[in-house]
Design a protein around this nucleic acid. Structure first.
Length: 567
RNA sequence: UGCCCUGUAGUGUAACCGGCAACACGUCUGAUUCUGGAUCAGAAGAGUUCAGGUUCGAGUCCUGACGGGGCAGCCA
């Protein structure tokens, strides 16, 4: 094998869609174009599953030097709203994608769609049907039995045309009749049993207002919209596989340019739900604080939680694209944020559950300024000052009066280092009348200041801390999985998914002690609180007087793992 | 008892026209470390759902089972 032309080795396609595109490029199927689209229905907020689709569609376009449109699939006025189109645009933009001037709405095509429907009638391929919903269901047959033809199937073209025009003009009440494609009532694919193309529905549309009282169905609209936009690869999720023959049928019958529909498996994540209906329920029944609740798997929730677009994009890359349904471990998403934040987030010290330490040999009223590195992974982030005083706070969990094995933090008679400061030794445990620890009395070794070359002593642990007199209070919100079960949808009879909600998914801790430099932080700023995790200034509730930090994700924690194992 | 899709370590994906299964997460060692973080080195873990067949050779091709998912909205 020749090794001389490594640089010319073609990039191996890493998913089945790229294989298809590579092949199409080779055969020049679309003149070398790659043009995708992201087609959300504006009836809900986008979630991490949509992010996968967005990254796929925009990512493919970018990789192949093509284009990706943003198109709102707004053919059902009863469920859609501008609130959602605005949020969708914001979310896609936040993820880092740009559709430039290619912002489309299926409703922009209503005139054209109507015209094409008439064309189908003229071709004898569509008819107006007056069966009631119940009747139509009966006529449709079942999954195992063929359907039977509607008695209205053989109307004349003129009659169909006239009725359809009347439908459009509002001559009939809602639901009185529909326009149907004339395909095959005995098709094993139920989608092909004379599917509905237009229904009468007097509803105010968020864009077209009251111009229409008939609205086209998804199957008719989607393929034609793709065709109008000259899309090459129309990516959608698996549940549309059975609709593909219909997608093709309309375009073939109408003689239109034909994109190809390719289906891939939607994203599933454990410990959460990813269905619009269920997310809507969580919001409407106030199980959460809204669409942007930091526990929600929505893009806006992840954003408020403190996730970065880079992390989400990287995650989408990690999980890949395939046709088999699967459930991705939440741990992968968390890995992805940690990885990004490790290199970008400045470090700071915060004590969530404080216990006071008095350094008995440090002069009262004295304040020493110490220097701390902002990000050990990135020297350019510089340093900051930290005040050191006689009284400080450390984390209550970092002290154990009777240390269990493998615990090598502070305990009586033991030494630990204070991050960026000195080594201290615990001499005395002060308790109240109930036996609760109120203070620890320690002494520090002035020779062990961080960064001094004289310091050679090794201690087993380094603790984070803040000066008791110089720190300030803040509220910290700790988040855990929204659901207790890996699969929240598995419920016993009579229960529903909300019964699997994790009662401890949010813990609000008041009066946490933060180092003074954190005072300058702004909404959305992210930090690593050393030894604790990554945190973000809450964009909704944080104020100067009442700072609120969200925990984005914990640090990888081998200690709790050890503890769990010992137990 | 219809049709469509799908089945590769614990999880998610890869393996070009058949050539002795790779990557990531996770797990476990060890090194290192002023974050029990990060980093570095290494390990374990699948013989590709099963049974046949074709072939010198099959995760890749064929046949048949079995498992999982989807489809009977005037939703998308």
């Amino acid at each position: 094998m020749s090794e001389s032309n490594i640089s010319e080795t073609p990039k191996v396609a890493s998913n089945f869609i790229k294989v298809i595109i590579n092949d199409d490029l080779k055969t020049n199927k679309y003149d070398g174009r790659v043009h995708t689209r992201f087609p959300p229905e504006p009836n809900g907020y986008l979630h991490i599953g949509h992010a996968k689709s967005i990254c796929l569609n925009f990512g493919l376009a970018k990789e192949y030097a093509g284009l990706c449109n943003l198109r709102f699939d707004d053919t059902n006025p009863t469920k859609e709203d501008v609130e959602y189109v605005d949020s969708i645009k914001e979310d896609v933009r936040w993820l880092g994608f740009d559709w430039e001037d290619r912002e489309y709405f299926a409703s922009d095509y209503f005139d054209r769609l109507y015209e094409l429907a008439e064309q189908l009638i003229l071709k004898g391929k569509a008819f107006v049907c007056e069966l009631t919903q119940d009747q139509m269901r009966q006529y449709r047959g079942t999954l195992t039995e063929p359907g039977i033809n509607s008695p209205f199937r053989d109307r004349t073209i003129d009659e169909n045309l006239e009725l359809f025009r009347k439908m459009k003009n509002g001559d009939f009440p809602d639901g009185a009749m529909v326009l149907r494609a004339k395909i095959d009532m005995s098709s094993p694919n139920v989608n092909m049993r004379d599917p509905i193309i237009y229904r009468i529905r007097r509803d105010h549309h968020h864009r077209t207002g009251d111009k229409w009282c008939i609205y086209p169905m998804y199957d008719f609209t989607h393929c034609i919209s793709d065709s109008i936009e000259f899309i090459t690869h129309s990516l959608c999720t698996l549940e549309f596989e059975n609709n593909r023959p219909l997608y093709d049928w309309f375009l073939i019958e109408l003689g239109l340019y034909r994109p190809q529909q390719i289906e891939f498996a939607r994203l599933n994540l454990n410990f959460t739900v990813l269905s619009k209906r269920k997310l809507l329920k969580l919001v409407e029944d106030n199980f959460v604080d809204g669409w942007d609740d930091p526990r929600m798997p929505t893009i806006t929730g992840l954003r408020r939680r403190g996730y970065t677009p880079e992390a989400v994009r990287n995650f989408a890359e990690m999980v890949g694209v395939a046709k088999a349904d699967s459930i991705v471990d939440m741990g992968m998403l968390e890995f992805s944020v940690r990885k990004h934040l490790n290199s970008t987030a400045n470090r700071a010290m915060a004590v969530l559950n404080p216990v006071k330490i008095v350094i008995t040999n440090f002069p009262e009223g004295q304040k020493e300024i110490l220097e701390a590195v902002n990000n050990p992974e990135d020297e350019s982030k510089g340093v900051r000052n930290i005040p050191f005083t006689r009284e400080i706070f450390i984390e209550r969990e970092d002290f154990m009066e009777e240390p269990q094995k493998k615990f090598f933090r502070l305990s009586p008679g033991r030494e630990v280092r204070l991050r960026y400061a000195y080594i201290i030794m615990c001499n005395e445990v002060i308790k109240d009348e109930h036996g609760n620890i109120t203070e620890l009395h320690c002494t520090y070794d002035a020779e062990t200041k961080s960064g001094t070359s004289s310091e050679t002593r090794k201690v087993k642990a380094t603790l984070h801390w803040v000066s008791a007199s110089e720190c300030f209070d803040a509220e910290v919100r700790l988040y855990d999985n929204l659901f207790m079960k890996e699969n929240p949808n598995s419920v016993e009879d009579g229960k529903e998914f909300t019964d699997n909600l994790n009662p401890d998914s949010l813990k609000i801790i008041s009066n946490c002690k933060l180092e003074p430099s954190l005072r300058d932080s702004n909404s959305g700023d992210r930090f690593q609180f050393e030894r604790l995790g990554y945190f973000c200034v809450d964009s909704k509730h944080s104020t100067l007087d009442h700072p609120v930090f969200n925990r984005i994700v914990t640090l990888k924690d081998t200690w709790t793992k050890i503890q769990a194992k010992e137990a």
